[in-house]
Amino acid sequence: MASANIDRKRINGPEVSVIPLPLQGEASAEQAPLLNQDAKRQDGRNVETVRPFFIKTGAVPAADGSAFVEQGNTKVICAVYGPRPDRKLTDTDRGRVTVEFRLAPFAQAKRRGFVKDVVEKEYSQVLEDALAPAIVFESFSKAAVDVFVTVLEDDGTLASVAAGVSAASLALADAGIEMYDLVAACTAGFVEDMVVMDLTATEEKLRKGSMLLAYMSSLNQVSQVIQTGSVGATTAEEAMDFCIDACAEIHTLMSEALVAAAHEAQSQTAPTNNVAVVDDDDMEL
């Protein structure tokens, strides 16, 4: 936690604290190879399999729209506020969408401070760019929509960003912001000469490059690709194909979650809930 600039708005502990060293002779999981002898990864997946997805909308009732996405151990929560008035937007007919991407202090193996760092700023921009092609900015002119994405648990940072894109897109839909399509995102890593989908935090240490792809399935359009690391053109193409297939699957799950949420909302509003019933026996804790 050694940082030159102390965060005076929060409570700081001792000046320096570190995570303890591993025991001598302890086999660390990080040194294990990517694949075991059965060509399976540590969590039992094949190279082209993405982790199971769990999607829920309405995770933050105080927000205008929200979503919670779990991908393996990775947990991402997203809340959308708006469209709300913005004084800065007087000279344009378009609306504005800002994304704030945060990693919770406890999300990773090493604790992070509360102050926003460069990584978070970069990923905020990545999310904004991935979502922008899908949003109908003219539908909320002169108003601002704020999207807050927080990673509660990070098992693979790039995969968390991808989950953040999917969560943000869902939350925007939940908030009723007009969009051309839902954006689903997915990641691949390049390990040795293989394309490996959806790397976990321990697997990320083995990669020599990575790809993040955001895809609008109904429009059949890619809204963003970020590829890093030196790989051949065919490998990159292969990774893109894998990602597009995975995104299409995620897109289906997202639409299903939205439809389910809409059905639930409908069945809840059918009987009017404006009648207050007080149950004396119910000792509310």
Binding site: C78, E100, P105, F148
Partner: peptide, 19 residues
């Protein structure tokens, strides 16, 4: 030892709080 407690109300949790 130390117990360092921080309670954060991020802008995510309510429309009242700004970034």
């Amino acid at each position: 030892g130390f117990l360092v407690v921080n309670l954060d109300l991020p802008p995510l949790c309510s429309g009242k709080h700004r970034p």
